[in-house]
Nucleic acid binder design. Structure first.
Length: 487
DNA sequence: TTGGATT
Protein backbone atom coordinates (compact mmCIF):
# COMPACT_ATOMS: atom_id res chain seq x y z
CA UNK A 1 0.00 0.00 0.00
CA UNK A 2 3.03 2.14 0.13
CA UNK A 3 2.78 2.45 -3.60
CA UNK A 4 -0.60 3.99 -3.42
CA UNK A 5 0.44 6.60 -0.87
CA UNK A 6 3.53 7.38 -2.80
CA UNK A 7 1.63 7.82 -5.96
CA UNK A 8 -0.81 10.17 -4.32
CA UNK A 9 1.83 12.38 -2.83
CA UNK A 10 3.90 12.52 -5.95
CA UNK A 11 0.93 13.08 -8.09
CA UNK A 12 0.05 16.09 -6.05
CA UNK A 13 3.40 17.64 -5.61
CA UNK A 14 5.57 16.72 -8.54
CA UNK A 15 3.42 15.01 -11.06
CA UNK A 16 6.18 12.62 -12.03
CA UNK A 17 6.29 10.52 -8.93
CA UNK A 18 4.84 7.34 -10.30
CA UNK A 19 7.65 6.85 -12.73
CA UNK A 20 10.11 7.71 -10.05
CA UNK A 21 8.67 5.29 -7.53
CA UNK A 22 8.57 2.40 -9.92
CA UNK A 23 12.16 2.82 -10.95
CA UNK A 24 13.72 3.77 -7.71
CA UNK A 25 12.03 1.45 -5.31
CA UNK A 26 11.17 1.57 -1.69
CA UNK A 27 13.66 4.11 -0.42
CA UNK A 28 12.52 6.63 -2.92
CA UNK A 29 8.98 5.88 -2.01
CA UNK A 30 9.68 6.62 1.61
CA UNK A 31 11.31 9.87 0.71
CA UNK A 32 8.41 11.12 -1.17
CA UNK A 33 5.99 10.17 1.50
CA UNK A 34 7.94 12.09 4.10
CA UNK A 35 9.19 15.05 2.21
CA UNK A 36 7.59 16.99 -0.57
CA UNK A 37 11.05 18.06 -1.69
CA UNK A 38 11.94 14.45 -2.19
CA UNK A 39 14.77 14.54 0.31
CA UNK A 40 14.04 13.72 3.90
CA UNK A 41 16.43 14.83 6.54
CA UNK A 42 16.01 11.53 8.33
CA UNK A 43 17.88 9.45 5.79
CA UNK A 44 21.33 10.42 4.53
CA UNK A 45 20.34 10.61 0.96
CA UNK A 46 22.95 12.72 -0.68
CA UNK A 47 26.46 11.46 -1.06
CA UNK A 48 28.95 13.55 0.85
CA UNK A 49 30.69 14.28 -2.40
CA UNK A 50 27.60 15.06 -4.40
CA UNK A 51 27.86 17.82 -6.95
CA UNK A 52 25.39 20.61 -7.43
CA UNK A 53 24.84 21.15 -11.10
CA UNK A 54 23.86 24.27 -12.89
CA UNK A 55 21.37 23.69 -15.70
CA UNK A 56 21.19 26.40 -18.28
CA UNK A 57 19.24 27.12 -21.45
CA UNK A 58 15.95 25.82 -20.10
CA UNK A 59 12.79 27.03 -21.80
CA UNK A 60 10.84 29.23 -19.43
CA UNK A 61 7.73 27.21 -19.77
CA UNK A 62 9.32 24.17 -18.13
CA UNK A 63 9.22 23.90 -14.37
CA UNK A 64 10.57 21.34 -11.94
CA UNK A 65 7.98 18.70 -12.71
CA UNK A 66 8.67 18.93 -16.40
CA UNK A 67 12.40 18.75 -15.94
CA UNK A 68 12.56 15.84 -13.53
CA UNK A 69 11.90 13.09 -16.05
CA UNK A 70 14.64 14.40 -18.24
CA UNK A 71 17.23 14.21 -15.46
CA UNK A 72 16.02 11.22 -13.48
CA UNK A 73 17.27 9.11 -16.28
CA UNK A 74 20.74 9.48 -14.79
CA UNK A 75 19.95 8.81 -11.19
CA UNK A 76 17.97 9.71 -8.16
CA UNK A 77 17.46 13.43 -7.75
CA UNK A 78 18.14 14.99 -4.40
CA UNK A 79 17.05 18.46 -5.25
CA UNK A 80 15.93 20.31 -8.34
CA UNK A 81 15.14 23.98 -8.24
CA UNK A 82 14.30 26.28 -11.07
CA UNK A 83 15.81 29.70 -10.49
CA UNK A 84 13.24 32.44 -10.22
CA UNK A 85 13.57 36.17 -9.98
CA UNK A 86 13.56 37.17 -6.37
CA UNK A 87 10.95 39.87 -6.87
CA UNK A 88 8.87 38.97 -9.87
CA UNK A 89 9.09 35.22 -9.41
CA UNK A 90 9.83 34.94 -13.09
CA UNK A 91 11.51 31.81 -14.39
CA UNK A 92 15.13 32.65 -15.17
CA UNK A 93 15.71 29.88 -17.66
CA UNK A 94 18.05 27.92 -15.46
CA UNK A 95 18.07 25.59 -12.48
CA UNK A 96 20.16 23.90 -9.86
CA UNK A 97 20.19 20.16 -9.74
CA UNK A 98 21.75 17.89 -7.17
CA UNK A 99 21.70 14.15 -7.56
CA UNK A 100 21.93 11.91 -4.58
CA UNK A 101 24.97 10.33 -6.12
CA UNK A 102 27.96 12.16 -7.45
CA UNK A 103 28.13 9.59 -10.21
CA UNK A 104 24.70 10.55 -11.51
CA UNK A 105 25.76 14.14 -11.84
CA UNK A 106 28.81 13.19 -13.84
CA UNK A 107 26.72 10.97 -16.08
CA UNK A 108 24.17 13.70 -16.65
CA UNK A 109 26.85 16.24 -17.38
CA UNK A 110 28.50 13.93 -19.89
CA UNK A 111 25.28 13.02 -21.60
CA UNK A 112 23.60 16.40 -21.68
CA UNK A 113 25.98 19.32 -21.49
CA UNK A 114 25.90 21.08 -24.83
CA UNK A 115 24.49 17.88 -26.30
CA UNK A 116 20.93 18.81 -27.09
CA UNK A 117 18.84 21.89 -27.39
CA UNK A 118 15.51 22.09 -25.66
CA UNK A 119 12.48 23.23 -27.68
CA UNK A 120 12.39 26.95 -28.22
CA UNK A 121 16.01 27.55 -27.24
CA UNK A 122 18.70 28.48 -29.68
CA UNK A 123 21.60 27.28 -27.58
CA UNK A 124 22.27 23.79 -26.25
CA UNK A 125 21.48 22.90 -22.67
CA UNK A 126 24.15 23.58 -20.07
CA UNK A 127 24.85 20.97 -17.42
CA UNK A 128 27.88 21.67 -15.27
CA UNK A 129 28.91 22.09 -11.67
CA UNK A 130 27.35 25.22 -10.23
CA UNK A 131 29.54 28.23 -9.56
CA UNK A 132 28.59 27.99 -5.94
CA UNK A 133 30.07 24.52 -5.96
CA UNK A 134 33.48 24.71 -4.46
CA UNK A 135 36.02 24.81 -7.18
CA UNK A 136 37.91 22.47 -4.97
CA UNK A 137 39.05 24.86 -2.32
CA UNK A 138 37.42 23.01 0.52
CA UNK A 139 39.16 19.81 -0.40
CA UNK A 140 42.38 21.28 -1.63
CA UNK A 141 45.33 21.29 0.70
CA UNK A 142 48.37 23.45 0.83
CA UNK A 143 51.37 21.43 1.86
CA UNK A 144 54.42 23.25 3.11
CA UNK A 145 57.83 22.33 4.42
CA UNK A 146 58.40 19.62 1.91
CA UNK A 147 61.81 18.56 0.92
CA UNK A 148 62.69 20.31 -2.32
CA UNK A 149 63.68 17.02 -3.89
CA UNK A 150 60.26 15.49 -3.36
CA UNK A 151 58.32 14.90 -6.53
CA UNK A 152 54.61 14.81 -7.23
CA UNK A 153 54.74 11.04 -6.86
CA UNK A 154 56.44 11.28 -3.48
CA UNK A 155 53.76 13.62 -2.28
CA UNK A 156 51.02 11.43 -3.67
CA UNK A 157 52.41 8.45 -1.82
CA UNK A 158 52.40 10.44 1.35
CA UNK A 159 48.79 11.50 0.94
CA UNK A 160 47.12 8.65 -0.90
CA UNK A 161 46.07 6.65 2.12
CA UNK A 162 43.65 9.36 3.21
CA UNK A 163 41.52 9.46 0.11
CA UNK A 164 41.54 9.66 -3.61
CA UNK A 165 43.75 12.40 -4.92
CA UNK A 166 42.40 14.33 -7.84
CA UNK A 167 45.29 16.64 -8.25
CA UNK A 168 48.79 16.93 -6.91
CA UNK A 169 51.05 19.78 -7.88
CA UNK A 170 54.40 20.85 -6.56
CA UNK A 171 54.89 24.59 -6.62
CA UNK A 172 57.91 25.38 -8.68
CA UNK A 173 59.86 28.44 -9.56
CA UNK A 174 60.47 29.50 -13.13
CA UNK A 175 63.56 27.32 -13.20
CA UNK A 176 61.52 24.26 -12.31
CA UNK A 177 62.86 23.99 -8.79
CA UNK A 178 60.46 22.96 -6.11
CA UNK A 179 59.54 25.70 -3.70
CA UNK A 180 59.07 23.08 -1.04
CA UNK A 181 55.33 23.23 -1.13
CA UNK A 182 52.50 21.65 -3.01
CA UNK A 183 48.77 21.44 -3.54
CA UNK A 184 46.91 18.22 -3.03
CA UNK A 185 43.27 18.03 -4.00
CA UNK A 186 41.14 15.21 -2.71
CA UNK A 187 37.75 14.25 -4.02
CA UNK A 188 36.13 15.27 -0.77
CA UNK A 189 36.49 17.66 2.09
CA UNK A 190 36.47 14.79 4.59
CA UNK A 191 39.46 13.15 3.00
CA UNK A 192 41.33 16.41 3.05
CA UNK A 193 40.46 16.89 6.67
CA UNK A 194 41.68 13.41 7.48
CA UNK A 195 45.00 14.11 5.82
CA UNK A 196 45.41 17.28 7.83
CA UNK A 197 44.72 15.43 11.04
CA UNK A 198 47.19 12.72 10.28
CA UNK A 199 49.97 14.59 8.56
CA UNK A 200 50.16 18.17 9.75
CA UNK A 201 53.23 18.55 11.90
CA UNK A 202 53.67 14.78 11.87
CA UNK A 203 57.19 14.74 10.54
CA UNK A 204 60.04 16.92 9.43
CA UNK A 205 61.39 16.38 5.98
CA UNK A 206 65.13 16.23 5.57
CA UNK A 207 66.36 19.70 4.84
CA UNK A 208 63.14 21.36 5.94
CA UNK A 209 63.37 23.90 8.70
CA UNK A 210 60.25 22.77 10.48
CA UNK A 211 57.66 20.06 10.47
CA UNK A 212 55.33 19.36 7.62
CA UNK A 213 52.55 21.89 7.10
CA UNK A 214 49.24 20.55 5.88
CA UNK A 215 46.33 22.95 5.73
CA UNK A 216 43.46 23.93 3.52
CA UNK A 217 44.57 26.09 0.65
CA UNK A 218 43.63 29.73 0.65
CA UNK A 219 40.21 30.63 -0.54
CA UNK A 220 39.76 33.26 -3.20
CA UNK A 221 39.01 35.79 -0.52
CA UNK A 222 42.15 35.05 1.41
CA UNK A 223 44.18 35.31 -1.72
CA UNK A 224 42.67 38.68 -2.49
CA UNK A 225 43.44 39.90 0.99
CA UNK A 226 46.98 38.69 0.68
CA UNK A 227 47.42 40.54 -2.55
CA UNK A 228 45.99 43.70 -1.06
CA UNK A 229 48.40 43.45 1.81
CA UNK A 230 51.28 43.09 -0.57
CA UNK A 231 50.15 46.12 -2.50
CA UNK A 232 49.76 48.07 0.69
CA UNK A 233 53.24 47.04 1.76
CA UNK A 234 54.67 48.42 -1.43
CA UNK A 235 52.80 51.67 -1.02
CA UNK A 236 54.03 51.95 2.52
CA UNK A 237 57.63 51.78 1.47
CA UNK A 238 57.36 54.75 -0.84
CA UNK A 239 55.02 56.64 1.32
CA UNK A 240 56.54 60.01 2.15
CA UNK A 241 55.57 59.68 5.78
CA UNK A 242 57.63 56.54 6.07
CA UNK A 243 60.53 58.32 4.47
CA UNK A 244 60.20 61.22 6.81
CA UNK A 245 60.15 59.03 9.82
CA UNK A 246 62.95 56.99 8.43
CA UNK A 247 64.99 60.11 7.95
CA UNK A 248 64.14 61.32 11.37
CA UNK A 249 65.09 57.98 12.83
CA UNK A 250 68.50 58.16 11.25
CA UNK A 251 68.89 61.72 12.37
CA UNK A 252 67.97 60.96 15.95
CA UNK A 253 70.19 57.94 15.91
CA UNK A 254 73.28 59.90 14.97
CA UNK A 255 72.51 62.58 17.49
CA UNK A 256 72.08 60.04 20.20
CA UNK A 257 75.22 58.24 19.32
CA UNK A 258 77.09 61.48 19.49
CA UNK A 259 75.66 62.15 22.91
CA UNK A 260 76.60 58.69 24.01
CA UNK A 261 80.15 59.11 22.80
CA UNK A 262 80.46 62.32 24.67
CA UNK A 263 79.42 60.55 27.82
CA UNK A 264 81.86 57.68 27.57
CA UNK A 265 84.97 58.31 29.59
CA UNK A 266 88.47 57.83 28.23
CA UNK A 267 89.13 54.48 29.84
CA UNK A 268 85.52 53.46 29.96
CA UNK A 269 84.31 50.14 28.64
CA UNK A 270 82.74 50.37 25.24
CA UNK A 271 79.96 47.94 24.63
CA UNK A 272 79.73 46.54 21.13
CA UNK A 273 76.78 48.77 20.53
CA UNK A 274 78.57 51.82 21.77
CA UNK A 275 81.56 50.91 19.69
CA UNK A 276 79.27 50.62 16.77
CA UNK A 277 77.77 53.98 17.49
CA UNK A 278 81.14 55.59 17.74
CA UNK A 279 82.42 53.99 14.62
CA UNK A 280 79.34 54.86 12.72
CA UNK A 281 79.83 58.48 13.63
CA UNK A 282 83.11 58.32 11.87
CA UNK A 283 81.56 56.58 8.94
CA UNK A 284 78.94 59.21 8.70
CA UNK A 285 81.68 61.75 8.59
CA UNK A 286 83.41 59.80 5.87
CA UNK A 287 80.28 59.54 3.84
CA UNK A 288 79.75 63.22 4.25
CA UNK A 289 83.20 63.86 2.91
CA UNK A 290 83.98 65.71 6.08
CA UNK A 291 87.04 64.89 8.09
CA UNK A 292 86.53 64.03 11.72
CA UNK A 293 83.03 65.11 12.49
CA UNK A 294 82.68 66.45 15.98
CA UNK A 295 81.73 63.81 18.46
CA UNK A 296 80.16 66.22 20.86
CA UNK A 297 77.30 67.88 19.07
CA UNK A 298 75.55 68.60 22.31
CA UNK A 299 75.98 72.33 22.42
CA UNK A 300 73.00 74.48 21.75
CA UNK A 301 69.94 73.27 19.93
CA UNK A 302 71.22 73.68 16.44
CA UNK A 303 71.83 70.95 13.97
CA UNK A 304 75.43 69.87 13.69
CA UNK A 305 75.97 70.48 10.01
CA UNK A 306 78.47 67.77 9.44
CA UNK A 307 76.11 65.13 10.60
CA UNK A 308 72.49 65.80 10.05
CA UNK A 309 72.33 67.42 6.67
CA UNK A 310 74.07 64.68 4.69
CA UNK A 311 72.05 62.13 6.56
CA UNK A 312 68.93 63.70 5.27
CA UNK A 313 70.14 64.28 1.75
CA UNK A 314 71.44 60.77 1.49
CA UNK A 315 67.87 59.63 1.48
CA UNK A 316 66.37 59.94 -1.97
CA UNK A 317 63.22 61.57 -0.79
CA UNK A 318 61.10 63.90 -2.85
CA UNK A 319 60.75 65.89 0.34
CA UNK A 320 63.51 68.43 0.69
CA UNK A 321 65.52 69.01 3.80
CA UNK A 322 62.99 71.67 4.54
CA UNK A 323 60.54 68.90 4.98
CA UNK A 324 62.18 68.53 8.30
CA UNK A 325 60.63 71.73 9.50
CA UNK A 326 57.44 69.77 9.59
CA UNK A 327 58.86 67.35 12.09
CA UNK A 328 58.56 67.73 15.78
CA UNK A 329 61.67 69.69 16.67
CA UNK A 330 64.35 67.41 18.01
CA UNK A 331 65.58 68.33 21.42
CA UNK A 332 69.09 69.53 22.00
CA UNK A 333 70.07 66.08 23.08
CA UNK A 334 68.72 64.59 19.92
CA UNK A 335 65.86 62.86 21.66
CA UNK A 336 62.44 63.17 20.19
CA UNK A 337 60.15 65.17 22.44
CA UNK A 338 59.86 63.09 25.54
CA UNK A 339 56.13 63.38 25.95
CA UNK A 340 55.54 62.07 22.50
CA UNK A 341 57.67 59.04 22.81
CA UNK A 342 58.05 57.90 26.33
CA UNK A 343 54.94 58.75 28.25
CA UNK A 344 52.43 56.60 26.55
CA UNK A 345 53.56 53.55 28.40
CA UNK A 346 54.20 51.54 25.29
CA UNK A 347 57.47 49.72 25.12
CA UNK A 348 58.19 47.81 22.02
CA UNK A 349 60.89 45.83 23.68
CA UNK A 350 60.73 44.20 27.05
CA UNK A 351 62.60 46.14 29.69
CA UNK A 352 64.82 43.19 30.38
CA UNK A 353 66.07 43.19 26.83
CA UNK A 354 69.82 43.59 26.90
CA UNK A 355 69.59 46.24 24.21
CA UNK A 356 66.63 48.18 25.48
CA UNK A 357 68.74 51.03 26.75
CA UNK A 358 70.84 51.33 23.65
CA UNK A 359 70.62 54.55 21.72
CA UNK A 360 70.05 52.67 18.55
CA UNK A 361 67.21 50.84 20.13
CA UNK A 362 65.69 54.05 21.33
CA UNK A 363 66.01 55.68 18.00
CA UNK A 364 64.22 52.78 16.48
CA UNK A 365 61.53 52.86 19.11
CA UNK A 366 61.14 56.55 18.48
CA UNK A 367 60.53 55.94 14.81
CA UNK A 368 57.88 53.42 15.59
CA UNK A 369 56.21 55.67 18.07
CA UNK A 370 55.99 58.51 15.62
CA UNK A 371 54.77 56.20 12.95
CA UNK A 372 51.99 55.14 15.22
CA UNK A 373 50.74 58.64 15.93
CA UNK A 374 51.13 60.69 12.78
CA UNK A 375 47.96 62.69 13.39
CA UNK A 376 49.41 64.20 16.53
CA UNK A 377 51.51 66.61 14.52
CA UNK A 378 49.65 69.43 12.92
CA UNK A 379 52.20 70.44 10.36
CA UNK A 380 52.55 66.94 9.13
CA UNK A 381 48.85 66.63 8.94
CA UNK A 382 48.80 69.71 6.75
CA UNK A 383 51.40 68.34 4.43
CA UNK A 384 49.70 64.95 4.25
CA UNK A 385 46.04 65.45 5.04
CA UNK A 386 45.35 61.73 5.07
CA UNK A 387 48.53 59.92 5.88
CA UNK A 388 48.14 56.30 4.90
CA UNK A 389 48.78 53.87 7.71
CA UNK A 390 52.27 52.55 7.75
CA UNK A 391 52.17 48.86 7.12
CA UNK A 392 54.56 46.62 9.02
CA UNK A 393 57.42 45.96 6.75
CA UNK A 394 57.46 42.66 5.02
CA UNK A 395 60.37 40.87 3.63
CA UNK A 396 61.02 42.12 0.17
CA UNK A 397 63.84 41.86 -2.23
CA UNK A 398 64.95 44.87 -4.07
CA UNK A 399 66.06 44.91 -7.69
CA UNK A 400 69.20 43.15 -8.75
CA UNK A 401 72.26 44.67 -7.14
CA UNK A 402 70.27 46.26 -4.35
CA UNK A 403 70.25 43.38 -1.91
CA UNK A 404 72.94 42.92 0.67
CA UNK A 405 73.95 39.93 2.67
CA UNK A 406 75.38 40.86 6.03
CA UNK A 407 77.23 38.48 8.27
CA UNK A 408 78.75 38.79 11.74
CA UNK A 409 75.96 40.87 13.09
CA UNK A 410 75.90 41.32 16.84
CA UNK A 411 73.75 38.67 18.41
CA UNK A 412 71.33 41.25 19.78
CA UNK A 413 70.64 42.90 16.45
CA UNK A 414 67.15 42.49 15.12
CA UNK A 415 65.51 43.66 11.93
CA UNK A 416 65.11 47.13 13.33
CA UNK A 417 68.71 47.61 14.31
CA UNK A 418 69.81 46.23 11.00
CA UNK A 419 67.64 48.73 9.22
CA UNK A 420 68.87 51.59 11.37
CA UNK A 421 72.41 50.64 10.61
CA UNK A 422 71.83 50.89 6.88
CA UNK A 423 69.36 53.74 6.66
CA UNK A 424 72.09 56.33 6.23
CA UNK A 425 72.98 54.85 2.87
CA UNK A 426 69.58 55.08 1.29
CA UNK A 427 66.05 53.89 1.25
CA UNK A 428 65.94 50.55 2.99
CA UNK A 429 62.96 48.66 1.66
CA UNK A 430 63.58 45.57 3.71
CA UNK A 431 65.80 44.36 6.49
CA UNK A 432 65.77 40.86 7.86
CA UNK A 433 67.87 39.22 10.50
CA UNK A 434 67.70 35.47 10.40
CA UNK A 435 66.47 33.96 13.58
CA UNK A 436 66.70 30.37 14.64
CA UNK A 437 63.15 29.22 14.84
CA UNK A 438 63.67 26.90 17.73
CA UNK A 439 65.64 29.24 19.99
CA UNK A 440 64.53 32.60 18.62
CA UNK A 441 68.18 33.61 18.60
CA UNK A 442 69.67 35.60 15.80
CA UNK A 443 71.84 33.59 13.51
CA UNK A 444 73.97 36.72 13.18
CA UNK A 445 73.33 37.21 9.54
CA UNK A 446 70.70 38.98 7.59
CA UNK A 447 69.63 40.87 4.53
CA UNK A 448 69.12 44.47 3.69
CA UNK A 449 67.51 45.64 0.48
CA UNK A 450 67.74 49.11 -0.95
CA UNK A 451 65.71 50.54 -3.76
CA UNK A 452 68.76 51.34 -5.85
CA UNK A 453 72.16 49.78 -6.45
CA UNK A 454 74.02 52.98 -5.60
CA UNK A 455 72.85 52.86 -2.01
CA UNK A 456 73.82 49.22 -1.82
CA UNK A 457 77.29 49.97 -3.09
CA UNK A 458 77.69 52.87 -0.71
CA UNK A 459 76.67 50.60 2.14
CA UNK A 460 79.17 47.96 1.12
CA UNK A 461 81.90 50.56 0.86
CA UNK A 462 81.24 51.88 4.30
CA UNK A 463 80.09 48.90 6.24
CA UNK A 464 82.01 45.93 4.93
CA UNK A 465 84.72 45.11 7.42
CA UNK A 466 83.15 47.43 9.91
CA UNK A 467 84.18 46.37 13.37
CA UNK A 468 81.62 45.82 16.05
CA UNK A 469 82.99 44.41 19.27
CA UNK A 470 85.27 41.57 18.35
CA UNK A 471 83.73 40.97 14.96
CA UNK A 472 83.90 42.62 11.62
CA UNK A 473 80.82 42.88 9.49
CA UNK A 474 80.82 41.17 6.19
CA UNK A 475 78.70 43.16 3.80
CA UNK A 476 78.32 42.05 0.23
CA UNK A 477 75.75 41.70 -2.46
CA UNK A 478 73.40 38.86 -1.82
CA UNK A 479 73.98 35.87 -4.01
CA UNK A 480 71.37 35.57 -6.72
CA UNK A 481 69.05 32.67 -6.11
CA UNK A 482 70.36 30.51 -8.91
CA UNK A 483 74.02 31.06 -8.16
CA UNK A 484 74.50 28.15 -5.84
CA UNK A 485 73.61 25.28 -8.05
CA UNK A 486 76.74 23.50 -9.17
CA UNK A 487 74.95 21.00 -11.35
C1' DT B 1 77.36 31.91 6.36
C1' DT B 2 72.75 33.79 1.33
C1' DG B 3 65.26 35.62 1.98
C1' DG B 4 61.60 31.76 7.60
C1' DA B 5 59.13 30.42 1.30
C1' DT B 6 53.80 29.88 0.13
C1' DT B 7 48.09 29.74 -2.32
Amino acid sequence: MATLTNGQVDGTVHGVGVVSASTNGLVNGLNHSHSPAGCPATIPMKDHDAIKLFIGQIPRNLDEKDLRPLFEEFGKIYELTVLKDRFTGMHKGCAFLTYCARESALKAQNALHEQKTLPGMNRPIQVKPADSESRGEDRKLFVGMLNKQQSEDDVRRLFESFGSIEECTILRGPDGNSKGCAFVKYSSHAEAQAAIGALHGSQTMPGASSSLVVKFADTDKERTIRRMQQMAGQMGIFNPMALQFGAYGAYAQVQQQAALMASVGQGGYLSPMAAFAAAQMQHMATINGLPGAPLTPTSGGSTPPGISAPTVTSIPSPISVNGFTGMPPPQANGQPPAEAVFTNGIHHYPAQSPTAADPLQQAYTGVQQYAAYPAAYGQISQAFPHPPPIIPQQQREGPEGCNLFIYHLPQEFGDGELMQMFLPFGNVISSKVFVDRATNQSKCFGFVSFDNPGSAQAAIQSMNGFQIGMKRLKVQLKRPKDANRPY
